[in-house]
């Protein structure tokens, strides 16, 4: 009985520590889209804390070569350290692959507010791997809301963005590509 009681108490402590560690990690901003956190973007995966207090954080890259990943790793470790969790390891996991569908509803709204047209659904576009590049049929201008927009370049300022322009307000804007 005593043993069981102890185990339950330890599990409870670990769970609390895990929730705390997750909250801290979830708050880390993305270096290239600083108005969004890595949790908004779906870059943060699992957070585990073991009995000794060691924190394991799993993150996943948006694109294979995304250079922000190293910065994110460092930021997560720094934040955890600042919050009294210096004993931590950040793991990069690839599977299942990141998709823009992992961006939270809150994240989508933040993108729009900051002048970046959010991605349409990627779901199924690559589901069977046979579909072509997902086409954004109705990208609305994030500034004036007009649907009269066109793609200028599919590869934009970062790996995840395309460059578009609005036909109504004539402003160019970034569009996060469905992936």
């Amino acid at each position: 009985m005593v043993t069981r009681g102890t185990t339950t108490a330890t599990a409870g402590t670990t769970r609390t520590a895990e929730e705390r560690a997750r909250r801290v990690a979830a708050d880390v901003p993305d270096p290239e889209l600083p108005m969004l956190t890595i949790d908004d973007l779906g870059i943060l995966r699992e957070v585990h804390v073991d009995g000794s207090g060691h924190v394991d954080v799993d993150i996943t890259p948006t694109y294979s070569g995304c250079p922000a990943l190293e910065a994110i790793r460092a930021d997560v470790l720094t934040r955890l350290d600042e919050h009294g969790m210096p004993d931590a390891t950040v793991h990069v996991v690839l599977s299942p692959p990141w998709t823009t569908d992992r961006i939270s509803a809150d994240g989508i709204e933040k993108l729009r507010r900051h002048g970046i047209a959010p991605p349409g659904p990627a779901g199924g576009a690559h589901g069977d791997g046979r579909a072509p590049v997902p086409l954004a049929l109705t990208v609305r201008c994030p500034r004036c809301g007009s649907p009269d927009t066109r793609e200028l370049a599919r590869f934009g300022s970062t790996a995840c963005k395309a460059l578009w322009v609005c036909g109504d307000c004539a402003e160019p804007f970034d569009h996060l590509k469905a992936l």
Binding site: E46, T60, T89, V90, H91, V92, V93, S95, P96
Partner: peptide, 11 residues
């Protein structure tokens, strides 16, 4: 399955 994915050189 997530943990069976690739981990970076540092790890």
């Amino acid at each position: 399955s997530e943990r069976s994915g690739w981990r970076s050189a540092a790890e």
